[in-house]
Simulated assay, not measured.
Amino acid sequence: MTATTSTSTDVPGGERAAREPRARFRDLVAAEWLKHRSLRSTWIAYGATALAVIGFNAGIAYDTYSHWTLQVSKDRAAFASDGIALQQAFTANAALLMALALGAIGALVVVGEYSTGTIRTTFAAVPARRSVMAAKAVVVTVVTTVFGMAVAGVSFTLTQAILDRRDAGVSICDPGALRVVLASALLAPVCALVGLALGAVIQHTASTMITSVVVILVLPLFLTDGRHWSAVVGHTLPYRAWLRLVDVNHSPIAFPWTTGGAWTVYTVWVCIACAIAVTGVHRRDQ
């Protein structure tokens, strides 16, 4: 009687599985990009956010244009020199709107898969969870940076074109203009990565969205510059960092800080969010 032997092809996870090459990181990035762009709701969210932000900024500029004759001559001369034209290039309310929307989009990259259960399939195909989350972070960073640059660039061009009809617009070469555009553009990936990190840790849609709103919107509005501890905590938040970066003339405040500090806040939030997203999910059971 002959003995029946099993080949490695018959044994799940055996020698054949051991010989299979691990997924390359660029393949994971390509897979995450495919998932990101294949969802129609994602592009609807991007489109709606872009239209709302650009429309909001353009509306403020047009209101200034249409009521320009009510300005006294002294105020007209100081309009550009006081940085008001740049304030209308990307308004505070538009920045909050974009920050909230991008935070939600970043969160849905993760919690969308948890809610449908497809995250189990993803981790079954690629057990290296950290690599998967790193690929998600790369895709979110690239896409939202391009989105932010497009929205900030169009907003600046459109608002200044409207104001220029009253000889009140500024160019991108004017002092502080490029900083306003870059700060507004990079606010998008910062908030999207915050949402991604919260989604990776919380893993529930409603809880993630509520926490995102608290971090991005409620805390900056709750904290004040009138108290030292409150000002210091506020300076660590992305939205407050954006406010400092777009304040071209640097209005005097009780506890001032530098533009370098504001750029550092952007960088630290990105690094911490990526670290949480990549390491947090590795410690959780699916």
Score class of each variant (00 low, 15 high):
residue 210 I to L: 12
residue 150 A to E: 00
residue 270 V to E: 04
residue 249 N to D: 14
residue 11 V to E: 11
residue 133 M to I: 08
residue 37 R to I: 04
residue 34 L to R: 12
residue 230 S to W: 02
residue 12 P to S: 12
residue 58 A to Q: 11
residue 199 G to Q: 00
residue 211 T to C: 01
residue 182 L to I: 05
residue 142 V to R: 06
residue 83 G to W: 07
residue 231 A to R: 00
residue 133 M to Q: 13
residue 268 V to M: 13
residue 45 A to E: 00
residue 102 L to Q: 13
residue 133 M to T: 06
residue 216 I to R: 04
residue 47 G to H: 01
residue 103 G to A: 13
residue 223 L to G: 00
residue 266 Y to V: 08
residue 227 R to P: 02
residue 127 P to Y: 08
residue 44 I to F: 01
residue 39 L to T: 02
residue 269 W to C: 02
residue 229 W to S: 10
residue 22 R to K: 14
residue 162 I to Q: 05
residue 268 V to H: 10
residue 128 A to L: 06
residue 54 I to V: 15
residue 134 A to P: 12
residue 196 L to S: 06
residue 118 T to G: 03
residue 31 A to M: 13
residue 252 P to C: 11
residue 93 N to H: 14
residue 253 I to V: 15
residue 281 V to I: 15
residue 68 W to I: 09
residue 218 V to I: 15
residue 272 I to C: 05
residue 136 K to L: 12
residue 30 A to H: 12
residue 214 V to I: 14
residue 144 T to E: 07
residue 204 H to M: 05
residue 141 T to G: 06
residue 283 R to S: 10
residue 4 T to L: 09
residue 16 R to L: 15
residue 209 M to L: 12
residue 179 R to V: 12
residue 82 D to C: 02
residue 101 A to Y: 06
residue 76 R to P: 02
residue 200 A to N: 08
residue 203 Q to N: 06
residue 241 A to C: 05
residue 49 T to C: 10
residue 273 A to E: 03
residue 185 A to K: 00
residue 237 L to I: 05
residue 95 A to D: 09
residue 12 P to V: 09
residue 206 A to D: 03
residue 213 V to G: 11
residue 80 A to D: 11
residue 28 L to W: 11
residue 61 A to L: 01
residue 51 L to M: 10
residue 10 D to G: 15
residue 286 Q to H: 06
residue 59 G to Q: 02
residue 45 A to H: 03
residue 207 S to L: 09
residue 177 A to W: 02
residue 271 C to K: 00
residue 277 A to F: 08
residue 285 D to N: 05
residue 215 V to H: 00
residue 153 G to C: 03
residue 168 A to F: 03
residue 278 V to C: 04
residue 171 S to A: 13
residue 41 S to W: 11
residue 256 P to N: 11
residue 172 I to G: 04
residue 158 L to A: 09
residue 7 T to M: 08
residue 247 D to I: 14
residue 277 A to E: 04
residue 190 V to N: 05
residue 183 A to K: 03
residue 27 D to F: 08
residue 11 V to A: 08
residue 228 H to L: 09
residue 238 P to Q: 04
residue 79 F to L: 14
residue 102 L to N: 05
residue 80 A to I: 14
residue 212 S to R: 01
residue 120 R to F: 10
residue 186 L to R: 03
residue 275 A to G: 15
residue 53 V to N: 02
residue 40 R to W: 10
